[in-house]
């Protein structure tokens, strides 16, 4: 389990992370959703021990992230393509594996598995500089999985990725979940959070505004469903908290119905309701 208690981090006058507390259960995919500059990466940096918090604490199965033992359990997929472009895929993996005391007799099989996992086995001996953006992202993921970490921190892993590679990455995330890994996934794409995450934290200006499953967040902060009915009596639009009942009543009063539109709230709406602005503002 990952337990975060009252994390705070300041950079000069900017309070990048304010009193963030959360619990992530083993095997869960936790999404940290917020716009750019909300404090997602800073939070992950503190959770992985990359930077020290000004106050608060992080526990990874009872271990401090800076401890050597915890580092063997952490897999970080940085937001940037953290690879050596002039080396081949295998050279990169071999180097990163060498930092984790992986037994020599397992090294090759771990590299093979990682390359196969991200669909790059046939490009093993190619230089990374020749890869597409999506392939680099996938190799970025592979490099973090060599030591079989328990906690996988993915910082905006789909930034600048083509749809094909994005889908492949989604599949990878779900496969990792099936393998029992705990995944912390930051994104500013609400579709990704909605599709992948068991639990979502919405963060803005360093503050964790809401926390829960997608359903819980929609229910608590999504607002009513927007219904629009076009009939012989004209167009009727209304907000509904009980869509089926409201629809039946509305249809009973019309002879001819041309079109019905039901817009359920999404995480975008949750963010809008919480902050008063769009997620992509």
């Amino acid at each position: 389990m990952i337990q975060v208690e009252s994390l705070n981090k300041r950079f000069g006058n900017i309070h990048a992370v304010r009193d963030v507390s959360l619990k992530i259960h083993p095997g869960q995919i936790f999404g940290l959703l917020g716009p750019n500059g909300a404090g997602k990466s800073t939070s992950i940096s503190m959770m992985t021990g990359l930077i020290d918090a000004d106050s608060g604490s992080v526990s990874l199965s009872g271990l401090k992230p800076q401890s050597k033992e915890a580092r063997h359990k952490i897999g970080l997929i940085p937001q940037s393509i953290a690879l050596y472009e002039e080396l081949t895929a295998t050279d990169n993996l071999s180097f990163f594996a060498s930092l984790y005391d992986i037994p020599k007799n397992q090294l090759q099989s771990r590299m093979d598995w990682a390359l196969d996992f991200v669909g790059l086995k046939d490009r093993a001996t190619d230089r990374v500089s020749g890869f597409s953006g999506g392939m680099k992202r996938r190799l970025n993921l592979a490099a973090s999985l060599l030591h079989d970490p328990d906690f996988i921190f993915m910082d905006e892993p789909t930034a600048g990725v083509d749809p094909q590679s994005r889908n492949k990455l989604f599949d990878n995330v779900l496969e990792l979940k099936e393998l029992g890994k705990t995944i912390i996934y930051t994104t500013h794409y609400m579709e990704e959070a909605q599709k992948l995450c068991d639990q979502v934290g919405i963060i803005d200006h360093g503050e964790l505004l809401a926390l829960g499953t997608v359903g819980e967040l929609l229910k608590q902060h999504g607002g009513d469903t927007q219904v629009s009915i076009s009939s012989d009596r004209g167009v009727k639009e209304f907000k509904s908290s009980d869509v089926s009942n409201d629809l039946i009543q509305a249809l009973q009063t019309s002879d001819k119905v041309y079109d019905i539109s039901v817009n359920s709230p999404d995480l975008e709406a949750v963010f809008l309701n919480l902050t008063g602005r769009q997620l992509r503002d």
Partner: peptide, 13 residues
């Protein structure tokens, strides 16, 4: 700047 340093720092080294 590439971010590979972050990988090194997070590794048990």
């Amino acid at each position: 700047t590439l971010g590979t340093m972050n990988r090194l720092i997070v590794a048990p080294i």
